[in-house]
């Protein structure tokens, strides 16, 4: 084989070893999306009542319900409807809600996704900034008072659930001190900057990822500080600030970057509680609302969209990391 062909072969092998895990991840993600939608679909078949009975209302006669069922195409066997649903979903057509006034689901999604994204992005920025800051401080002051304080605080952050923290924050800051609003959707909402309404949900959502990022950053920084090159540069007389900020920080940051990505996925999908409790009309609110109303098309649509976002964000993290860290790039070849 000629030299050129060899190099080509090698670069193709290199490409595949890089792309294969990512493609596999994407495939798992898609398969699990299919699986989840199938479970939901079948479960809905088993559960009593369907979209037709829901739309017809309590007073409708059996014949009316049957007629409606035929109009909505619900009397066909479920595998056929499932395949049809998948076809529509792949073209991002989710149909209309079946409970109350029929509304296009795409319109509901378009209204609710931006606000959920906004909260998630703000929360992840907050969590990343303070998580990295506290983690670095804790590592530099390992086993000293600051370290112990930060660690206990982060334990609290991991274990206290959102639905405990949120009411308490609302009670203290909205009801007692009266400095923040009690919910996002207030009937007599005064003209105030929107950020004012976002503080409580963003802080509550950010706390848990902040705590995990703090612990991770601390562990990673402690590991880095023990490495040979650190001792070398101390011996060469690097000033402490330059040592921490330039030499160690960048090395310690890599595992934290992965965690920021996975936390972001968690924030996108984990906003159910915060949105429901603070009346933020985001995608989590929409999903819970759909479940309590038994609005199947909306349940399916919200699940698929959040699941899809979760998978895409995790995939992006996998794609971006090798660009940041040459060591991962090497290990994948």
């Amino acid at each position: 084989m000629s030299e050129v062909a060899l190099t080509q072969n090698r670069s193709r092998a290199k490409f595949w070893s890089f792309a294969r895990p990512i493609l596999l991840r994407l495939l798992y993600g898609l398969v699990s999306l299919l699986f989840i939608s199938l479970i939901t679909f079948v479960a809905d078949e088993i559960a009593p009542g369907d979209a037709a009975t829901a739309r017809a209302g309590d007073k409708a006669s059996l014949a009316q319900v049957e007629k409606l069922r035929e109009e909505m195409g619900l009397n066909r066997p479920w595998p056929i409807r499932y395949v049809e649903f998948l076809g529509n979903a792949s073209r991002l057509e989710f149909g209309e809600t079946t409970v109350g006034v029929p509304t296009p689901i795409n319109k509901l999604l378009a209204e609710s996704l931006p606000i959920s994204m906004k909260i998630a992005v703000m929360a992840i920025c907050l969590a990343a900034f303070f998580g990295i800051l506290f983690g670095t401080i804790a590592a530099i002051r390992e086993n000293k008072l600051a370290d112990r304080g930060i660690l206990s605080f982060s334990t609290l952050g991991v274990t206290i659930p959102n639905y405990v923290l949120l009411p308490i924050l609302v009670y203290v800051f909205a009801l007692q001190l009266d400095v923040l609003p009690t919910s996002y959707e207030l009937p007599d909402r005064q003209v105030a900057p929107e950020i004012f309404y976002l503080i409580i949900p963003v802080v509550v959502l950010a706390l848990r990822p902040m705590a995990t990022l703090t612990r991770l950053m601390r562990a990673s920084m402690v590991d880095t500080l023990k490495q040979e090159f650190v001792r070398l540069s101390v011996a060469k007389g690097t000033p402490p600030f330059r040592l921490y900020a330039v030499h160690c920080f960048r090395n310690a940051l890599i595992p934290v970057l992965t965690a920021i990505g996975t936390s972001f996925g968690y924030l996108l999908t984990g906003s159910f509680v915060v949105e429901t409790a603070y009346l933020v009309k985001g995608i989590g609110f929409l999903a819970i609302d759909a479940i309590t109303k038994k609005d199947t098309p909306l349940i399916l649509a919200t699940t698929l969209v959040t699941g899809f976002l979760f998978i895409i964000v995790n995939l992006l993290v996998d794609l971006v990391l090798p660009m940041v860290d040459p060591r991962i790039r090497e290990s994948q070849v």
């Binding site: 991840r25 699990s32 968690y266 159910f272 959040t306």
Partner: peptide, 24 residues
């Protein structure tokens, strides 16, 4: 093994909410 890996690709709470919400 593939199936177990696939289960990790989806957020836990969302799945539980789905199952509980769609059933009774």
């Amino acid at each position: 093994q593939r199936f177990t890996d696939g289960m990790f690709a989806f957020p836990d709470l969302l799945l539980a909410i789905m199952i509980v919400g769609v059933f009774q």
